[in-house]
Design a protein around this nucleic acid. Sequence first.
DNA 1: CCTTGATGTGACCACCCAGTCACTTTCTAC
DNA 2: GTAGAAAGTGACTGGGTGGTCACATCAAGG
Lengths: 203, 203
Amino acid sequence: MPTETFNNLPKDKQEAIIRAAVAEFAKSAYEQASLTKIVAQAGIAKGSMYQYFENKRELYLYILNMAYAEKKRFLQGVFDEDDDFFATLKRYYRRSYLFAKEFPLYHRVITHYWDYCAEFDQEIRSSRELRANEFIGMLEAAIENRQANPDIDKDAAFFVYHSVGKELIENFLELSEDVQEQHLQFIDQVLDVLALGLKKRKE
Amino acid sequence: MPTETFNNLPKDKQEAIIRAAVAEFAKSAYEQASLTKIVAQAGIAKGSMYQYFENKRELYLYILNMAYAEKKRFLQGVFDEDDDFFATLKRYYRRSYLFAKEFPLYHRVITHYWDYCAEFDQEIRSSRELRANEFIGMLEAAIENRQANPDIDKDAAFFVYHSVGKELIENFLELSEDVQEQHLQFIDQVLDVLALGLKKRKE
DNA sequence: CCTTGATGTGACCACCCAGTCACTTTCTAC
DNA sequence: GTAGAAAGTGACTGGGTGGTCACATCAAGG
Protein backbone atom coordinates (compact mmCIF):
# COMPACT_ATOMS: atom_id res chain seq x y z
CA MET A 1 0.00 0.00 0.00
CA PRO A 2 2.91 2.44 0.11
CA THR A 3 3.40 4.68 -2.90
CA GLU A 4 6.05 4.27 -5.58
CA THR A 5 7.81 7.23 -3.99
CA PHE A 6 8.27 5.25 -0.80
CA ASN A 7 9.60 2.21 -2.63
CA ASN A 8 12.17 4.36 -4.40
CA LEU A 9 13.45 5.81 -1.15
CA PRO A 10 17.01 4.98 -0.07
CA LYS A 11 17.00 1.89 2.12
CA ASP A 12 18.18 3.63 5.27
CA LYS A 13 15.46 6.25 5.07
CA GLN A 14 12.84 3.59 4.45
CA GLU A 15 14.11 1.66 7.40
CA ALA A 16 14.12 4.67 9.69
CA ILE A 17 10.46 5.28 8.85
CA ILE A 18 9.52 1.65 9.34
CA ARG A 19 11.45 1.44 12.58
CA ALA A 20 9.74 4.51 13.99
CA ALA A 21 6.30 3.30 12.92
CA VAL A 22 6.81 -0.18 14.33
CA ALA A 23 7.95 1.28 17.64
CA GLU A 24 4.92 3.54 17.89
CA PHE A 25 2.35 0.90 16.89
CA ALA A 26 4.00 -1.48 19.34
CA LYS A 27 3.73 1.08 22.12
CA SER A 28 0.14 2.09 21.41
CA ALA A 29 -2.86 0.60 19.68
CA TYR A 30 -3.91 2.08 16.35
CA GLU A 31 -6.16 4.82 17.67
CA GLN A 32 -3.72 5.97 20.35
CA ALA A 33 -0.64 5.81 18.16
CA SER A 34 0.53 9.22 17.03
CA LEU A 35 1.58 9.89 13.48
CA THR A 36 3.16 13.12 14.66
CA LYS A 37 5.46 11.14 16.94
CA ILE A 38 6.32 8.70 14.19
CA VAL A 39 7.46 11.38 11.76
CA ALA A 40 9.40 13.13 14.52
CA GLN A 41 11.16 9.88 15.44
CA ALA A 42 11.83 9.05 11.80
CA GLY A 43 13.26 12.52 11.22
CA ILE A 44 11.02 13.39 8.29
CA ALA A 45 8.37 16.04 7.73
CA LYS A 46 4.75 15.17 8.21
CA GLY A 47 3.97 16.11 4.63
CA SER A 48 6.51 13.57 3.40
CA MET A 49 4.73 10.77 5.18
CA TYR A 50 1.62 11.64 3.22
CA GLN A 51 3.60 11.19 0.03
CA TYR A 52 4.55 7.68 1.12
CA PHE A 53 1.24 6.55 2.57
CA GLU A 54 -2.29 7.71 1.90
CA ASN A 55 -3.04 8.15 5.59
CA LYS A 56 -2.44 6.76 9.05
CA ARG A 57 -4.58 3.72 8.35
CA GLU A 58 -2.56 2.66 5.31
CA LEU A 59 0.70 3.07 7.17
CA TYR A 60 -0.67 0.97 9.98
CA LEU A 61 -1.85 -1.79 7.68
CA TYR A 62 1.56 -1.85 6.01
CA ILE A 63 3.31 -2.27 9.34
CA LEU A 64 0.78 -4.82 10.52
CA ASN A 65 1.28 -6.91 7.41
CA MET A 66 5.04 -6.81 7.91
CA ALA A 67 4.60 -8.09 11.42
CA TYR A 68 2.28 -10.86 10.29
CA ALA A 69 4.57 -11.84 7.44
CA GLU A 70 7.45 -12.15 9.89
CA LYS A 71 5.36 -14.25 12.23
CA LYS A 72 4.18 -16.48 9.44
CA ARG A 73 7.79 -17.07 8.40
CA PHE A 74 8.72 -17.77 11.98
CA LEU A 75 5.93 -20.33 12.42
CA GLN A 76 6.71 -22.06 9.13
CA GLY A 77 6.79 -25.79 9.45
CA VAL A 78 5.05 -26.03 12.81
CA PHE A 79 2.18 -27.96 11.28
CA ASP A 80 4.30 -30.05 8.94
CA GLU A 81 5.37 -32.97 11.12
CA ASP A 82 2.12 -34.90 11.33
CA ASP A 83 2.74 -36.49 14.65
CA ASP A 84 0.44 -36.18 17.64
CA PHE A 85 -2.24 -33.45 17.52
CA PHE A 86 -1.29 -32.37 21.01
CA ALA A 87 2.40 -32.30 20.20
CA THR A 88 1.63 -30.04 17.26
CA LEU A 89 -0.35 -27.69 19.48
CA LYS A 90 2.51 -27.51 21.93
CA ARG A 91 4.94 -26.78 19.14
CA TYR A 92 2.64 -24.02 17.91
CA TYR A 93 2.26 -22.24 21.23
CA ARG A 94 5.91 -22.64 22.19
CA ARG A 95 6.99 -21.25 18.85
CA SER A 96 4.55 -18.34 19.16
CA TYR A 97 6.14 -17.56 22.49
CA LEU A 98 9.60 -17.63 20.97
CA PHE A 99 8.42 -15.27 18.26
CA ALA A 100 7.23 -12.84 20.92
CA LYS A 101 10.64 -13.09 22.50
CA GLU A 102 12.60 -12.62 19.32
CA PHE A 103 10.45 -9.89 17.77
CA PRO A 104 8.84 -8.20 20.76
CA LEU A 105 7.85 -5.12 18.77
CA TYR A 106 6.18 -7.06 15.97
CA HIS A 107 4.56 -9.14 18.64
CA ARG A 108 3.08 -6.12 20.34
CA VAL A 109 1.86 -4.69 17.06
CA ILE A 110 -0.05 -7.91 16.52
CA THR A 111 -1.50 -8.17 20.01
CA HIS A 112 -2.64 -4.56 19.87
CA TYR A 113 -4.43 -5.41 16.66
CA TRP A 114 -6.36 -8.19 18.35
CA ASP A 115 -7.42 -5.97 21.19
CA TYR A 116 -10.83 -5.10 19.92
CA CYS A 117 -10.75 -1.96 17.82
CA ALA A 118 -13.85 -0.71 16.00
CA GLU A 119 -11.81 0.31 12.97
CA PHE A 120 -10.92 -3.29 12.11
CA ASP A 121 -13.83 -5.27 13.51
CA GLN A 122 -14.67 -6.81 10.15
CA GLU A 123 -11.13 -7.95 9.37
CA ILE A 124 -10.61 -9.39 12.83
CA ARG A 125 -13.78 -11.44 12.61
CA SER A 126 -12.95 -12.96 9.26
CA SER A 127 -9.38 -13.83 10.15
CA ARG A 128 -10.63 -15.44 13.35
CA GLU A 129 -12.99 -17.56 11.29
CA LEU A 130 -10.09 -18.69 9.13
CA ARG A 131 -8.11 -19.83 12.14
CA ALA A 132 -11.19 -21.58 13.51
CA ASN A 133 -11.54 -23.64 10.33
CA GLU A 134 -7.89 -24.63 10.41
CA PHE A 135 -8.12 -25.70 14.03
CA ILE A 136 -11.33 -27.62 13.57
CA GLY A 137 -9.86 -29.41 10.58
CA MET A 138 -6.92 -30.55 12.69
CA LEU A 139 -9.21 -31.53 15.52
CA GLU A 140 -11.36 -33.66 13.22
CA ALA A 141 -8.29 -35.46 11.99
CA ALA A 142 -7.25 -36.08 15.60
CA ILE A 143 -10.68 -37.52 16.36
CA GLU A 144 -10.38 -39.86 13.38
CA ASN A 145 -6.98 -40.98 14.69
CA ARG A 146 -8.61 -41.66 18.06
CA GLN A 147 -6.36 -39.10 19.74
CA ALA A 148 -9.07 -36.61 20.62
CA ASN A 149 -12.32 -36.93 22.46
CA PRO A 150 -15.10 -37.26 19.87
CA ASP A 151 -17.83 -36.06 22.27
CA ILE A 152 -16.44 -32.60 22.64
CA ASP A 153 -18.05 -29.63 20.87
CA LYS A 154 -15.58 -28.50 18.22
CA ASP A 155 -16.49 -24.83 18.23
CA ALA A 156 -16.20 -24.78 21.99
CA ALA A 157 -12.80 -26.45 21.74
CA PHE A 158 -11.55 -23.84 19.30
CA PHE A 159 -12.93 -21.11 21.48
CA VAL A 160 -10.99 -22.45 24.44
CA TYR A 161 -7.69 -22.77 22.60
CA HIS A 162 -8.13 -19.41 20.97
CA SER A 163 -8.77 -17.50 24.18
CA VAL A 164 -6.11 -19.28 26.17
CA GLY A 165 -3.56 -18.80 23.41
CA LYS A 166 -4.36 -15.12 23.19
CA GLU A 167 -3.93 -14.57 26.90
CA LEU A 168 -0.93 -16.84 27.13
CA ILE A 169 1.24 -14.97 24.71
CA GLU A 170 -0.01 -11.61 25.86
CA ASN A 171 1.06 -12.41 29.38
CA PHE A 172 4.77 -12.98 28.89
CA LEU A 173 6.15 -9.65 27.86
CA GLU A 174 8.93 -8.95 30.31
CA LEU A 175 10.83 -11.61 28.43
CA SER A 176 13.93 -11.69 30.60
CA GLU A 177 16.38 -14.43 29.69
CA ASP A 178 16.36 -16.40 32.88
CA VAL A 179 12.66 -17.10 33.01
CA GLN A 180 12.27 -18.28 29.44
CA GLU A 181 12.49 -21.94 30.34
CA GLN A 182 10.02 -21.32 33.14
CA HIS A 183 7.61 -19.69 30.69
CA LEU A 184 7.87 -22.56 28.24
CA GLN A 185 7.15 -24.99 31.04
CA PHE A 186 4.11 -22.99 32.07
CA ILE A 187 2.86 -23.11 28.48
CA ASP A 188 3.22 -26.89 28.56
CA GLN A 189 1.30 -27.08 31.79
CA VAL A 190 -1.49 -24.91 30.45
CA LEU A 191 -1.75 -27.12 27.39
CA ASP A 192 -1.84 -30.16 29.64
CA VAL A 193 -4.81 -28.65 31.44
CA LEU A 194 -6.51 -28.23 28.09
CA ALA A 195 -5.66 -31.71 26.91
CA LEU A 196 -6.43 -33.61 30.08
CA GLY A 197 -9.20 -31.51 31.59
CA LEU A 198 -9.66 -30.72 35.23
CA LYS A 199 -11.91 -33.66 35.95
CA LYS A 200 -10.28 -36.67 37.50
CA ARG A 201 -9.68 -39.42 34.96
CA LYS A 202 -10.62 -42.97 35.76
CA GLU A 203 -8.12 -45.82 35.74
CA MET B 1 -14.70 9.44 46.31
CA PRO B 2 -17.31 12.03 45.30
CA THR B 3 -17.45 15.24 47.33
CA GLU B 4 -20.06 16.15 49.94
CA THR B 5 -21.51 18.54 47.37
CA PHE B 6 -22.27 15.62 45.08
CA ASN B 7 -23.91 13.62 47.84
CA ASN B 8 -26.17 16.56 48.69
CA LEU B 9 -27.36 16.88 45.12
CA PRO B 10 -31.03 16.15 44.34
CA LYS B 11 -31.42 12.49 43.39
CA ASP B 12 -32.48 13.12 39.81
CA LYS B 13 -29.45 15.27 39.09
CA GLN B 14 -27.15 12.74 40.68
CA GLU B 15 -28.72 10.04 38.59
CA ALA B 16 -28.43 12.03 35.39
CA ILE B 17 -24.72 12.45 36.00
CA ILE B 18 -24.21 8.80 36.85
CA ARG B 19 -26.25 7.68 33.88
CA ALA B 20 -24.22 9.83 31.51
CA ALA B 21 -20.92 8.68 32.98
CA VAL B 22 -21.88 5.01 32.90
CA ALA B 23 -22.93 5.33 29.27
CA GLU B 24 -19.66 6.96 28.28
CA PHE B 25 -17.40 4.58 30.20
CA ALA B 26 -19.39 1.68 28.73
CA LYS B 27 -18.90 3.02 25.21
CA SER B 28 -15.20 3.79 25.57
CA ALA B 29 -12.34 2.66 27.75
CA TYR B 30 -11.02 5.09 30.35
CA GLU B 31 -8.52 6.91 28.19
CA GLN B 32 -10.86 7.30 25.23
CA ALA B 33 -13.89 8.28 27.29
CA SER B 34 -14.62 12.01 27.11
CA LEU B 35 -15.47 14.03 30.15
CA THR B 36 -16.69 16.79 27.87
CA LYS B 37 -19.29 14.42 26.42
CA ILE B 38 -20.34 13.23 29.87
CA VAL B 39 -21.09 16.71 31.17
CA ALA B 40 -22.90 17.58 27.93
CA GLN B 41 -25.04 14.45 28.20
CA ALA B 42 -25.71 15.06 31.88
CA GLY B 43 -26.71 18.65 31.17
CA ILE B 44 -24.30 20.23 33.63
CA ALA B 45 -21.36 22.58 33.25
CA LYS B 46 -17.88 21.17 33.17
CA GLY B 47 -16.91 23.23 36.19
CA SER B 48 -19.67 21.61 38.21
CA MET B 49 -18.28 18.16 37.57
CA TYR B 50 -15.03 19.30 39.16
CA GLN B 51 -16.96 20.26 42.28
CA TYR B 52 -18.35 16.72 42.48
CA PHE B 53 -15.23 14.76 41.58
CA GLU B 54 -11.59 15.67 41.83
CA ASN B 55 -10.88 14.66 38.25
CA LYS B 56 -11.73 12.20 35.51
CA ARG B 57 -9.95 9.37 37.29
CA GLU B 58 -12.00 9.72 40.48
CA LEU B 59 -15.24 9.84 38.53
CA TYR B 60 -14.19 6.73 36.67
CA LEU B 61 -13.28 4.84 39.82
CA TYR B 62 -16.63 5.81 41.36
CA ILE B 63 -18.51 4.43 38.34
CA LEU B 64 -16.32 1.34 38.20
CA ASN B 65 -16.98 0.56 41.84
CA MET B 66 -20.71 0.93 41.27
CA ALA B 67 -20.53 -1.57 38.43
CA TYR B 68 -18.51 -4.01 40.53
CA ALA B 69 -20.84 -3.64 43.49
CA GLU B 70 -23.80 -4.46 41.29
CA LYS B 71 -22.02 -7.48 39.86
CA LYS B 72 -21.05 -8.70 43.31
CA ARG B 73 -24.69 -8.45 44.41
CA PHE B 74 -25.76 -10.25 41.28
CA LEU B 75 -23.33 -13.12 41.83
CA GLN B 76 -24.21 -13.45 45.50
CA GLY B 77 -24.74 -17.03 46.53
CA VAL B 78 -23.15 -18.64 43.50
CA PHE B 79 -20.50 -20.25 45.66
CA ASP B 80 -22.80 -21.13 48.59
CA GLU B 81 -24.25 -24.47 47.52
CA ASP B 82 -21.29 -26.72 48.07
CA ASP B 83 -22.16 -29.30 45.52
CA ASP B 84 -19.87 -30.36 42.68
CA PHE B 85 -16.90 -28.10 41.89
CA PHE B 86 -17.77 -28.22 38.23
CA ALA B 87 -21.41 -27.41 38.87
CA THR B 88 -20.32 -24.36 40.84
CA LEU B 89 -18.13 -23.21 37.98
CA LYS B 90 -21.00 -23.56 35.54
CA ARG B 91 -23.27 -21.61 37.85
CA TYR B 92 -20.63 -18.89 38.09
CA TYR B 93 -20.10 -18.47 34.37
CA ARG B 94 -23.79 -18.74 33.53
CA ARG B 95 -24.64 -16.13 36.11
CA SER B 96 -21.89 -13.83 34.86
CA TYR B 97 -23.44 -14.11 31.45
CA LEU B 98 -26.86 -13.21 32.81
CA PHE B 99 -25.35 -10.20 34.54
CA ALA B 100 -23.94 -9.03 31.22
CA LYS B 101 -27.40 -9.43 29.75
CA GLU B 102 -29.21 -7.63 32.54
CA PHE B 103 -26.72 -4.80 33.04
CA PRO B 104 -25.00 -4.47 29.69
CA LEU B 105 -23.62 -1.03 30.48
CA TYR B 106 -22.10 -2.03 33.80
CA HIS B 107 -20.80 -5.12 32.09
CA ARG B 108 -19.03 -3.11 29.43
CA VAL B 109 -17.56 -0.74 32.01
CA ILE B 110 -16.03 -3.77 33.70
CA THR B 111 -14.71 -5.43 30.54
CA HIS B 112 -13.17 -2.17 29.42
CA TYR B 113 -11.40 -2.02 32.74
CA TRP B 114 -9.86 -5.44 32.20
CA ASP B 115 -8.61 -4.54 28.77
CA TYR B 116 -5.08 -3.67 29.70
CA CYS B 117 -4.74 -0.04 30.55
CA ALA B 118 -1.48 1.40 31.86
CA GLU B 119 -3.30 3.70 34.29
CA PHE B 120 -4.59 0.77 36.36
CA ASP B 121 -1.98 -1.90 35.83
CA GLN B 122 -1.24 -2.23 39.54
CA GLU B 123 -4.87 -2.58 40.60
CA ILE B 124 -5.63 -5.09 37.87
CA ARG B 125 -2.74 -7.29 38.88
CA SER B 126 -3.67 -7.40 42.53
CA SER B 127 -7.34 -8.10 41.93
CA ARG B 128 -6.35 -10.87 39.55
CA GLU B 129 -4.22 -12.39 42.27
CA LEU B 130 -7.19 -12.32 44.64
CA ARG B 131 -9.34 -14.22 42.19
CA ALA B 132 -6.52 -16.69 41.62
CA ASN B 133 -6.34 -17.52 45.31
CA GLU B 134 -10.09 -18.03 45.51
CA PHE B 135 -10.05 -20.33 42.51
CA ILE B 136 -7.10 -22.34 43.70
CA GLY B 137 -8.70 -22.77 47.11
CA MET B 138 -11.80 -24.22 45.48
CA LEU B 139 -9.69 -26.41 43.23
CA GLU B 140 -7.76 -27.81 46.18
CA ALA B 141 -11.01 -28.70 47.92
CA ALA B 142 -12.18 -30.43 44.73
CA ILE B 143 -8.97 -32.43 44.60
CA GLU B 144 -9.48 -33.53 48.20
CA ASN B 145 -13.02 -34.63 47.29
CA ARG B 146 -11.55 -36.63 44.44
CA GLN B 147 -13.51 -34.62 41.90
CA ALA B 148 -10.55 -32.93 40.27
CA ASN B 149 -7.39 -34.27 38.72
CA PRO B 150 -4.61 -33.96 41.33
CA ASP B 151 -1.83 -34.04 38.73
CA ILE B 152 -2.79 -30.78 37.11
CA ASP B 153 -0.82 -27.58 37.75
CA LYS B 154 -3.07 -25.31 39.77
CA ASP B 155 -1.75 -22.01 38.48
CA ALA B 156 -2.12 -23.25 34.94
CA ALA B 157 -5.67 -24.32 35.70
CA PHE B 158 -6.55 -20.89 37.01
CA PHE B 159 -4.91 -19.29 34.05
CA VAL B 160 -7.05 -21.35 31.72
CA TYR B 161 -10.33 -20.61 33.47
CA HIS B 162 -9.46 -16.97 33.81
CA SER B 163 -8.66 -16.41 30.16
CA VAL B 164 -11.56 -18.44 28.87
CA GLY B 165 -13.98 -16.73 31.23
CA LYS B 166 -12.76 -13.34 30.14
CA GLU B 167 -13.18 -14.07 26.47
CA LEU B 168 -16.44 -15.92 27.01
CA ILE B 169 -18.31 -13.06 28.57
CA GLU B 170 -16.71 -10.50 26.33
CA ASN B 171 -17.94 -12.36 23.29
CA PHE B 172 -21.67 -12.28 23.87
CA LEU B 173 -22.65 -8.68 23.60
CA GLU B 174 -25.40 -8.60 21.03
CA LEU B 175 -27.58 -10.19 23.69
CA SER B 176 -30.72 -10.65 21.61
CA GLU B 177 -33.48 -12.60 23.37
CA ASP B 178 -33.72 -15.60 21.08
CA VAL B 179 -30.11 -16.67 21.32
CA GLN B 180 -29.77 -16.54 25.09
CA GLU B 181 -30.45 -20.23 25.51
CA GLN B 182 -27.97 -20.92 22.74
CA HIS B 183 -25.34 -18.82 24.50
CA LEU B 184 -25.86 -20.59 27.80
CA GLN B 185 -25.49 -23.93 26.06
CA PHE B 186 -22.28 -22.77 24.45
CA ILE B 187 -20.97 -21.77 27.87
CA ASP B 188 -21.76 -25.25 29.13
CA GLN B 189 -19.95 -26.81 26.20
CA VAL B 190 -16.91 -24.65 26.76
CA LEU B 191 -16.83 -25.65 30.40
CA ASP B 192 -17.14 -29.29 29.37
CA VAL B 193 -14.07 -28.87 27.23
CA LEU B 194 -12.25 -27.49 30.25
CA ALA B 195 -13.49 -30.22 32.56
CA LEU B 196 -13.00 -33.19 30.27
CA GLY B 197 -10.05 -32.07 28.18
CA LEU B 198 -9.57 -32.68 24.51
CA LYS B 199 -7.71 -35.94 24.93
CA LYS B 200 -9.71 -39.10 24.50
CA ARG B 201 -10.56 -40.66 27.84
CA LYS B 202 -10.04 -44.35 28.43
CA GLU B 203 -12.85 -46.67 29.55
C1' DC C 1 -33.01 43.83 52.59
C1' DC C 2 -28.50 42.75 52.61
C1' DT C 3 -24.41 39.90 53.57
C1' DT C 4 -22.01 35.78 53.10
C1' DG C 5 -20.71 31.43 51.79
C1' DA C 6 -21.90 27.56 48.95
C1' DT C 7 -22.96 26.17 44.32
C1' DG C 8 -23.17 26.60 39.24
C1' DT C 9 -21.11 28.22 34.87
C1' DG C 10 -18.79 28.25 30.29
C1' DA C 11 -15.17 30.77 28.06
C1' DC C 12 -10.69 29.82 28.19
C1' DC C 13 -5.85 27.48 28.58
C1' DA C 14 -2.42 24.39 27.10
C1' DC C 15 -1.96 20.52 24.86
C1' DC C 16 -2.75 16.85 21.70
C1' DC C 17 -4.23 14.95 17.09
C1' DA C 18 -4.70 13.76 11.50
C1' DG C 19 -4.40 15.80 7.48
C1' DT C 20 -3.40 19.85 3.93
C1' DC C 21 -1.01 22.87 0.87
C1' DA C 22 1.70 26.71 -0.80
C1' DC C 23 6.12 26.81 -1.01
C1' DT C 24 11.18 25.22 -1.45
C1' DT C 25 14.64 22.02 -2.66
C1' DT C 26 16.52 18.37 -5.33
C1' DC C 27 16.90 15.59 -9.26
C1' DT C 28 16.74 14.58 -14.19
C1' DA C 29 16.90 15.19 -19.01
C1' DC C 30 17.66 17.81 -22.64
C1' DG D 1 22.72 25.52 -17.92
C1' DT D 2 18.28 25.42 -17.41
C1' DA D 3 13.38 23.93 -17.48
C1' DG D 4 10.25 21.03 -15.55
C1' DA D 5 9.07 17.30 -12.78
C1' DA D 6 9.48 14.96 -8.46
C1' DA D 7 10.18 15.06 -3.66
C1' DG D 8 10.45 17.40 0.78
C1' DT D 9 8.69 20.69 4.10
C1' DG D 10 6.38 22.64 8.30
C1' DA D 11 3.09 26.19 9.43
C1' DC D 12 -1.53 25.84 9.49
C1' DT D 13 -6.61 24.16 9.86
C1' DG D 14 -10.19 22.38 12.39
C1' DG D 15 -10.98 19.24 15.67
C1' DG D 16 -10.48 17.04 19.97
C1' DT D 17 -9.06 16.64 25.08
C1' DG D 18 -8.79 17.47 30.72
C1' DG D 19 -8.72 20.94 33.69
C1' DT D 20 -9.21 26.09 35.57
C1' DC D 21 -11.12 30.29 37.19
C1' DA D 22 -13.30 34.80 37.36
C1' DC D 23 -17.69 35.54 37.57
C1' DA D 24 -22.94 34.70 38.23
C1' DT D 25 -26.52 32.73 40.88
C1' DC D 26 -28.76 31.08 44.81
C1' DA D 27 -30.03 30.14 49.85
C1' DA D 28 -30.16 31.19 54.41
C1' DG D 29 -29.46 34.00 58.56
C1' DG D 30 -29.18 38.35 60.75
